[in-house]
């Protein structure tokens, strides 16, 4: 290259290096940043539910016996509707508001069962036991069974389902 075209600041090679690096990183950024958004998009939208679920009349639930109530909630994931199943143990005691436990074990989210013989909730996954008040008796769970917030409307029982 004739010397009169030579730039005093940098030689051709370093100029090309800079252009290559900057165009390359520009393309990577223009595609890369949207790609992150693209991936995490489902995690950003509104998730979960916030509903009062009717469990019907209190008379359906006997005293001093945790009784399982199952219900389904329809959720839309992307374009697909699916029905999620939930379970709640209703425990009524004479003269007190009912307590409603979630049937999800606080350890690793297995479903617990009521063992009437021993008067305990039993989680079959890692052999955990909770007493009738939801307190941990033995096993790995870090905290007692979760309770739903409740509302009484006459004799109608409602629980507050919040998720996400």
């Amino acid at each position: 290259m004739p010397s009169k075209y030579r730039s005093p600041v940098m030689d051709r090679r370093s100029f090309v290096k800079i252009v290559t690096a900057s165009l390359g990183s520009m393309m990577a950024a223009i595609v890369g940043l949207p790609v992150i958004q693209y991936f995490i998009s489902p995690a950003l939208g509104k998730t979960g539910s916030d509903d009062w679920i009717s469990l019907g009349s209190l008379d359906n639930f006997p005293f001093d016996l945790p009784t399982l109530f199952n219900f389904n909630i329809t959720q839309v994931n992307g374009w697909e509707r699916s029905s999620m199943s939930y379970g709640a143990f209703v425990l009524r005691k004479e003269g007190q508001d009912p307590i409603v436990f979630s049937d999800v074990c606080t350890h690793l989210s297995c479903r617990v069962n009521w063992d009437e013989e021993n008067k305990e909730f039993h989680c079959p996954c890692h052999n955990a036991f909770f007493d009738a008040n939801g307190e941990v008796v033995s096993g790995p769970p870090p905290r007692p069974l979760d309770q739903y917030e409740i509302r009484l409307d006459g004799d109608q029982l409602f629980i507050h389902l919040t998720e996400g």
Binding site: R12, R13, V16, K17, V19, T20, L23, M27, I30
Partner: peptide, 20 residues
């Protein structure tokens, strides 16, 4: 490198802009 790659890069970049 750098002559051929430089030209290739410029053209590819033009295609990139066109695509976007």
């Amino acid at each position: 490198w750098p002559d051929i790659i430089y030209k290739d890069l410029l053209v590819s970049f033009a295609f990139f802009i066109l695509l976007i």
